[in-house]
Amino acid sequence: MAILLGVPTVSQAQSNPGFSFIWGGDGPSQKSPANYVLEYGTPGHLNDRYRLKVQPQSAPVESITITFPDYYDGKFRASNIRLIQPAKSRKGKTTVIPLKAVKLSQDRRQVQIIPETPIPAKIQFAADFSKVVNPSEARTYRIYASITSPGDILLNRKAAVWNLKISEQ
């Protein structure tokens, strides 16, 4: 007879779940979820931080639009959203990317973030949401990001998909 014992662990931050199924789609953002970090990640938490990472793009980024699902009932403010460039090493500093505008569209469940100048190609960056009131329900929320690049014709293309998991701890 064998007895299995588990030891609970306490965690202050969670990151991208290690296992998920993605069917279909085109482009790298559909085939593997993008990385993210949540400071707490528990339902109804009143002061969470989301860091949604975007892989380096092949063209400059003029704007990024993040779309939340209709069942996401979390809350955040435009003034608490910024773009950052992560530190290159553990001891390095995170760089804040200056913004021209952050536009919230409650009815379309979208956030459009426009940097002062386009983010150069091949630069990794992240959307940083602070003081987030988490959704009331523990579940996985599929969040999409699309970007536009400068030029004569605005090309809006998928950049990332995050399977954001809010869970009871």
Score class of each variant (00 low, 15 high):
35 N>T: 03
151 G>I: 03
138 A>E: 03
80 N>A: 10
69 P>F: 07
165 K>A: 06
140 T>M: 11
132 V>G: 01
99 L>K: 05
82 R>Y: 01
142 R>S: 09
140 T>A: 11
13 A>R: 01
138 A>P: 10
37 V>C: 00
47 N>S: 07
56 P>C: 14
144 Y>G: 02
74 G>Q: 07
108 R>A: 13
92 G>H: 07
100 K>F: 02
36 Y>P: 00
11 S>W: 02
168 E>L: 15
122 K>I: 04
9 T>I: 14
38 L>W: 04
40 Y>L: 08
136 S>I: 08
153 I>F: 04
10 V>P: 00
28 P>S: 14
157 R>V: 12
11 S>I: 05
134 N>H: 05
146 S>R: 14
122 K>R: 14
56 P>I: 14
161 V>L: 13
169 Q>T: 11
136 S>F: 01
79 S>D: 14
145 A>N: 03
57 Q>K: 09
167 S>W: 08
3 I>G: 00
142 R>Q: 12
52 L>S: 00
47 N>V: 01
56 P>H: 09
151 G>A: 07
38 L>N: 11
82 R>I: 01
26 D>A: 07
2 A>P: 08
129 F>C: 02
57 Q>D: 09
4 L>T: 06
156 N>I: 05
161 V>A: 11
113 I>K: 12
86 P>S: 08
117 T>S: 14
10 V>K: 09
142 R>K: 13
19 F>I: 15
96 V>M: 04
102 V>D: 05
76 F>V: 03
107 D>W: 04
55 Q>K: 11
127 A>M: 15
29 S>Y: 10
64 I>P: 02
145 A>S: 14
72 Y>S: 04
25 G>W: 12
26 D>G: 12
162 W>Y: 06
50 Y>T: 00
102 V>A: 07
52 L>P: 00
88 K>P: 00
110 Q>E: 15
73 D>Y: 11
147 I>G: 03
12 Q>Y: 08
19 F>G: 00
31 K>A: 13
113 I>W: 12
168 E>W: 08
46 L>D: 15
103 K>W: 02
102 V>L: 10
126 A>L: 07
90 R>W: 03
143 I>W: 07
153 I>S: 00
125 F>W: 15
133 V>A: 06
65 T>N: 07
76 F>A: 01
127 A>Y: 00
4 L>D: 04
110 Q>K: 08
129 F>T: 02
147 I>Q: 12
126 A>Y: 05
107 D>I: 10
44 G>C: 07
91 K>R: 12
156 N>W: 04
96 V>W: 00
